[in-house]
């Protein structure tokens, strides 16, 4: 069984939802704290995540390795596909092509985004408390803002449509009716998650996050 493409493809499908799908939902909710509760709320969210036990292990086995496997194997899956949306202009066929296009977009975006944020913490250029102001730098640059919105929409589409396909690939939604209902639910997931991310990007671009940076610094110095 091991080493055959059935096994790899199933693992690819599973990792896309568990843990990566779970991660994108948690990420969206944490970011949304920036919109709902401002800099303090966002900082609390970051603090909450950083107070989880065994953070390095969670990051390596819960995020980095699944992300690398899903991303690199996903590029191979995209390479194996043709796009025939010209001859078959059905919504599902468009979604098939979009799933591959957004997958590649997300792959590039995630690397860039991790470099700008998490990597900077590893390099010692910023601290966890300064993430709010880092995001303010990014979101207040109009070009970066647009690129982030595109990246976020690509990632959220890839997850929502991937969730729909996951339910079929594991044999959970079988008939056309079940697949139609799950497509409505997945569309809802797309709308809600997109709203969470875009609203938090808007919040990050606000001035309070610029000021929060110095406040946070002061806070950690006292602490």
């Amino acid at each position: 069984m091991k080493g055959n493409s059935y096994f790899s493809r199933k693992l690819h499908s599973l990792l896309g939802i568990i843990p990566l799908g779970g991660f994108i939902v948690v990420h969206g909710l944490t970011n949304y704290q920036a919109f709902e509760r401002g800099p303090e709320g966002f900082e609390q969210g970051v603090h909450l995540i950083n107070s989880l036990p065994l953070i390095p292990l969670l990051e390596i086995f819960g995020i980095y390795l699944p992300l690398l496997f899903h991303g690199i194997y996903g590029l191979y899956v995209a390479y194996q596909s043709n796009s025939n949306t010209g001859r078959f202009q059905y919504g599902r066929n468009w979604a098939f092509t979009a799933q591959r296009v957004t997958g590649v977009m997300t792959f590039v975006f995630v690397f860039w985004h991790v470099y700008q944020t998490r990597m900077q913490i590893y390099l010692g250029n910023i601290t966890h408390e300064e993430l709010g102001s880092t995001m303010n730098h990014i979101a207040s640059n109009p070009v970066y803002f647009v690129l982030y919105v595109i990246g976020v929409l690509a990632a959220v589409f890839h997850f929502s449509n991937g969730l729909w396909a996951f339910l079929i690939s594991w044999g959970i939604t079988i008939g056309p009716k079940a697949q139609r209902i799950s497509s409505y639910i997945c569309m809802g997931v797309f709308v809600i998650l997109s709203a969470l991310f875009i609203l938090s990007l808007i919040a990050f671009s606000g001035d309070e996050f610029k000021e929060a940076a110095s406040a946070a610094l002061a806070f950690t110095n006292i602490g």
Binding site: M1, N4, S5, Y6, S8, R9, K10, V77, Q80, S81, N84, F88, Y90, R92, N93, A95, F96, T97, Q99, W164, A165, I168, S169
Partner: peptide, 20 residues
């Protein structure tokens, strides 16, 4: 047979087949 290389896993759910 469908769970070995080149089996069912290649389906990408474009669903053109059922329409065609």
């Amino acid at each position: 047979a469908l769970m070995s290389d080149g089996g069912i896993e290649g389906c990408g759910n474009s669903q053109n087949c059922v329409r065609s």
